[in-house]
Design a protein around this nucleic acid. Structure first.
Lengths: 143, 143
DNA sequence: ATCAGTGCAAAGACTTTGCACCACT
DNA sequence: AGTGGTGCAAAGTCTTTGCACTGAT
């Protein structure tokens, strides 16, 4: 059976005009398998295991295409490298500023809030996301 | 008369243990004067006009100290350089992905939302902020 | 044959670091 | 004289770019 995600992937590539290449698919697979929010470098390492010929530059390019067509989301936390995740259910993540662990936050509804933003600006909003950082329970106890 | 901000500045430096040097003050002044959200480089250019001997590295260091003690806020939009603003009234900014213009969004209340976040995670939240991007009216009309 | 996509290396942008010097205790 | 801060340059990290090559229409 072809999954809904699979159909969505093909559909988005078709509409965008970009080609669904094996490298781009591999990046998507790597993101699917990766627990947490890998950086481009981390995605690259996973992808390279299966196909050692892929270049880091290609992974960057693939991530940028996948983000552009809405299949993945880029997270800009305050430490440097951009991290990515599959754009499935809307959800929010918090990242520990000590150890870097990323955890999902449940029970917080963002959509009404995003709607309010759209009502209150003449901009055409393309991205409204949360950056949440803190200290995880584990690191708190190590004080 | 010594302004409230001025008192706050001294107080925060005192509590933090950092020294309120002329360079750090100059960075703060530059941020006060700058309309919009300057990058470290832009702050540096302003500061250098008054004191040509300051180094870019010092500006980076000063910004990092000022952020740490809560006097300024760092904004991580999706294009690369971090941009800063004075941490005065809570407010939200949207940045045009075409021209880079930053505009304040009014009429959106974040505090209840932030409280919900705190309730729904075991992390000690140190930073919860919004990244909002879009296309400004001016750039929309240039399509 | 064409043309988007790729691999590779080199360049680029932004930021941090190391270290000698400085200024204030 | 000791300690945190500074100026400067060099190094570092993350990302993009140029270009020749490849692979699918």
């Amino acid at each position: 059976m072809v999954s809904a995600l699979e159909r969505d992937v093909r559909e988005r590539f078709r509409r965008s005009g970009y080609t669904l290449t094996s490298q781009r698919r591999a990046v998507l697979e790597a993101l699917k398998d990766f627990k947490g929010h890998p950086s481009a470098e981390e995605v690259y390492l996973v992808v390279k295991k299966r196909n050692p010929r892929v270049a880091l530059g290609t992974v960057y390019q693939a991530l940028s295409v996948l983000e552009e067509i809405g299949l993945i989301e880029a997270k800009h936390w305050s430490e440097s490298p951009v991290r990515y995740d599959l754009n499935t259910e809307p959800h929010h993540d918090i990242r520990c500023i000590r150890c870097g662990e990323v955890t999902e936050i449940r029970g917080v509804e963002f959509e009404d809030f995003a709607a309010r933003i759209r009502e209150n600006t003449p901009y055409e909003v393309t991205n409204a996301s949360l950056v949440i950082e803190g200290v995880c329970p584990n690191c708190q106890s190590q004080n």
